[in-house]
Design a protein around this nucleic acid. Structure first.
Lengths: 171, 171
DNA sequence: CACCGTAATGTTATACTATAACATTAGATC
DNA sequence: GATCTAATGTTATAGTATAACATTACGGTG
């Protein structure tokens, strides 16, 4: 059994952690998930997922495109968007609507779920929460409104613990 | 004292309601709010707000631009985006991130607040909620994570009560 | 193994969303 | 009415996303 991913209880990764493990773990899990569904986890898709997992901050489609490019190879936008579509469909990445950007799913063990994101405006690091109480409150609001809930976007912006304390120490 | 805006308890406007009253009320309140802050509620800004309030569905910037255009007058995008910027800054409209679109604020009496939106995927109608329990759950999640919350995006998509019952009768 | 059909990727063009930078006009203040 | 600032106009361009069609790679079948 693989060790759990490096992260504090608060969902934000420690400032210094073995990030290679985060990436390797995500790719492994993705591979397993795709195999189970006989979905093709192709080289391109793996590469894009790797690029996305390169950091814990959401990354834009055109940044991915740039990372994918080299002297010999210069893919066009649809290449990236199609890979993203696949990865999103299988719950391997989430789209951050308020940033037009994409981030790797941090809860691959939880089948199809709507993410709740805590995004630091200073360092960009983004934690994915899966808060029961929050989910329940959303579900209740929907019920109360006679609304049949299908999808949800919950994106919270502010300062992560690390940047908050940095700020405090500064002026 | 003006009558409250037409709406069911669930936040969605009744299928048939005196929509002219919604618009008039929004414009009046906006006028008051701007006056209080000595912000200029110019003709253009009033016109854009009126276009946005023309329906209870979010509207895109370029749709607003089209509505603003005529044979004699054909404004450029910045005209609309600047008006939107002003209206957002004063809490008169909200941006719906997941749709790149804008909707009139339905809670002008509540000073600067983050909206919670219930968006019908069938008819587009969007209700703005201000759910205490949901807000509390979000705040709690932030605290638990040591996160200093500044802004939030909560956008729920699904079927509104009316479309839900229509769907049930069909099929 | 050769064939076929489908899924994936490549390629070109274009649509949609948003802003930078500078010019002009309109309003407030004195 | 001169002057200063806020608002709007104008031109150009950046950034995000998809449509449509061509080609390639892959899995199954005879």
């Amino acid at each position: 059994m693989a060790k759990p991913p490096a992260s504090n209880q608060n969902g934000f990764p420690p400032a210094r952690h073995d990030h290679a493990r985060c990436v390797a773990r995500a790719l492994e899990q993705a591979e397993g998930i795709c195999a189970k569904r006989s979905a093709q986890f192709t080289g391109l898709r793996r590469q894009v997922l790797g690029i996305i997992w390169n950091s814990h901050s959401p990354i834009g489609a055109y940044e991915i495109l740039a990372a994918l490019s080299s002297r010999e190879r210069r893919p066009a936008p649809p290449t990236v968007y199609r890979a993203l579509e696949f990865l999103q469909a299988h719950g391997l990445v989430h789209r951050i609507e308020s940033k037009n950007a994409y981030i790797g799913c941090a809860h691959l063990e939880t089948a199809q779920h709507a993410g709740q994101f805590l995004m630091c405006r200073a360092c960009g690091q983004t934690a994915e929460a899966c808060d029961k109480d929050l989910s329940r409150a959303i579900q209740k609001l929907a019920e109360k409104s006679g609304f049949s809930l299908e999808e949800q976007t919950v994106e919270l912006s502010g300062l992560c613990p690390a940047c908050k304390s940095k700020n405090r120490h500064a002026a």
